[in-house]
Design a protein around this nucleic acid. Structure first.
Length: 123
DNA sequence: TGCTTGACCACTC
DNA sequence: CGAGTGGCCAAGC
């Protein structure tokens, strides 16, 4: 049995529904490593997960857009989210989405389903 | 090997 | 509540 955090993270990120936002910690949890939130950010920053990753749907635990330089322009992430119908508002800390409304709310079944997929693919 | 860094997070006053 | 603090863990030098 092996464990490839990046492959797992790529699968989870691609599963974030259109029009929803997920948090770094949430992705780490679904990957089976609850404490690896920082690594999720690291992976996205270096584009380590491959192509076709909806990185704009990933925000921090408070719903703040990291706005990191992986996007071509500073407000690219905000624009992509708004195009999907997600409301983004300005706060002193930065652009923020309402996780209560537009957050990706997982069930325990979701988590278990991902773990099955990882086990089946030995990643 | 050891030390620094980072698109993070939870807890405590 | 808000700021401060400490924990976390892989990468890269």
């Amino acid at each position: 049995m092996s464990f490839d955090f990046y492959k797992r993270a790529a699968i989870v990120c691609r599963a974030i529904p259109y029009g929803k936002a997920a948090t770094y910690g949430q992705i780490a949890l679904l990957c089976g490593r609850p404490k690896n939130a920082r690594q999720v950010g690291y992976a996205l920053n270096r584009n380590r997960l491959g192509d076709a990753i909806p990185a704009h749907r990933v925000v921090n635990a408070r719903g703040i857009l990291s706005g990191a330089a992986a996007f071509e322009t500073a407000d690219m992430q905000k624009i992509l989210l708004e195009n999907e119908g997600v409301k983004v508002r300005f706060t002193p800390d930065g652009w923020q989405v309402d996780l209560k409304k537009d957050g990706w709310h997982n069930t325990m079944e979701d988590a278990l389903r991902f773990l099955e997929i990882f086990q089946a693919q030995d990643i």
